[in-house]
Design a protein around this nucleic acid. Structure first.
Lengths: 112, 112
DNA sequence: GTCTAATATTCTACAAAATAGAAAATATTG
DNA sequence: CAATATTTTCTATTTTGTAGAATATTAGAC
């Protein structure tokens, strides 16, 4: 039926974090961005697994960062959102928006 | 780390469909609502599996419908959103909103 | 130079969510 | 009762999500 056209929720968060960081995002910082922005606890393994999957699907592209980071440690891999990733993101958002449409303020949701 | 606190994307759609139908939703009609509203193709098995999971989690409650439907067929099971379901829905929405915040209109997304 | 601490990614293993479609149940109509 | 319509349940599988240990790499201390 549907064939891998949709994003999972965590995939959306990761994609959005990458978008927010506009080319400077890499595993660790992407995790920090999500945690900081949403308060959601996120394991680092979850982030990398998802980044890899999104790259495989063509939603993200990555490149090795400068070989000499500030303090030490392994080279960073920077991620950038691809056109297909933007589309997928917008598609997910439209889908949710259309479901929310007409729900708020109609009395269905006060004092949740 | 996080312990089952979050909704998957499809779970959100199902919960929203239930909310929209305000007590009258049952498996088949919930599926129609999602398809109609979002254009997304959805298998009936996916809907029922998700409804059951959401009920198990306490986000939905269900009850047998009237024993005599319009045309024939098995009795309907009507679903209703529970307070915990509303909360979960709002939590997911806030999370996504906070990630989208500042992204649109900044130039990051035109001509996706 | 070697050790230690810091930073980052990769790997392993598993749990939860999503998906499809066949099967079964139940009612209506003729 | 047979044929048909409606709805839910069941079975099986793939995809996503999750955690944390293991590994790699570099800088700085000494």
């Amino acid at each position: 039926m549907g064939k891998g056209k949709f994003l999972g929720e965590f995939e959306q968060l990761v994609l959005l974090a990458v978008l927010r960081m506009d080319g400077d995002g890499y595993g660790m910082s992407i995790r920090r961005e999500i945690v900081g922005q949403t308060g959601r606890e996120v394991s680092i393994g979850a982030v990398y697994a998802t980044l890899e999957r999104l790259e495989r699907k063509g939603f993200l592209a990555s490149e090795e960062g400068e070989a000499t980071p500030v303090r030490g440690g392994r080279a960073r891999r920077h991620f950038r959102l691809q056109p297909a990733g933007k589309q997928a993101l917008l598609r997910s958002r439209r889908m949710l928006d259309s479901m929310w449409d007409g729900v708020d303020g109609v009395g269905s949701l006060e004092q949740a």
